[in-house]
Amino acid sequence: MRYGMVIDLSKCSGCMSCDVACKRENFTPPGVHWSKVHIYETGRYPDSKLRALPTHCMHCEEPACEKACPTGATVLRPDGVVFIDNDHCIGCGYCAMACPYEARVLNRHAPRPYHEPHDFTPFEQIGYFQRLGIVEHGKGVIEKCTFCLHRLEQGSLPACVETCPAGARVFGDLDDPNSDVAELAKTATPRLEEEGTKPKVLYTRLAEHLGY
């Protein structure tokens, strides 16, 4: 079992539903983006293109973050999810520096309200501080995309996959030769392959989208 994802860039139009779904699902506070969709352009007018590149933790097979972590807080789970154990994270930030995908965020401060100077909304209060979840947005720890581990454990899909209106994200077990994701992965490519981290988030038509 190795969870992985293929993102079909020909279907993604950059609507950012995934970003907001991630916020909603994981209660990420202001300034913390586990999921990002970079909007940019390639080419010269009129042969130019508007581009959208969704990105988050690549859940690498050989994660640079895991190697950089001095406390063992970051681990590659047997199911392929790169996981941070908050109890062991000391917030040194080495992993964030090591990650070639800039997927990790160090919480230097406790969460702030989105509507500052107004107080936290009721669900922010609960989402940031009161629930007993697998992720806490505590001060001084690193956080990032978990592939929505809590959803996987309930037999569901990551929130970004479930919500993508265009169906650009395909998720599943890369080890299952009958899975859609394994089939798509055959022709998909990772970002920054030269980093050697072997991402399990792959893209179709990546070179074209990067303007190569």
């Binding site: 699902e25 009161q130 629930r131 007993l132 979840g133 809590h150 959803r151 309930q154 037999g155 569901s156």
Partner: peptide, 9 residues
């Protein structure tokens, strides 16, 4: 697999 999932906690 598609359906509402209760956030943990």
């Amino acid at each position: 697999p598609v359906g509402p999932i209760v956030p943990p906690g």
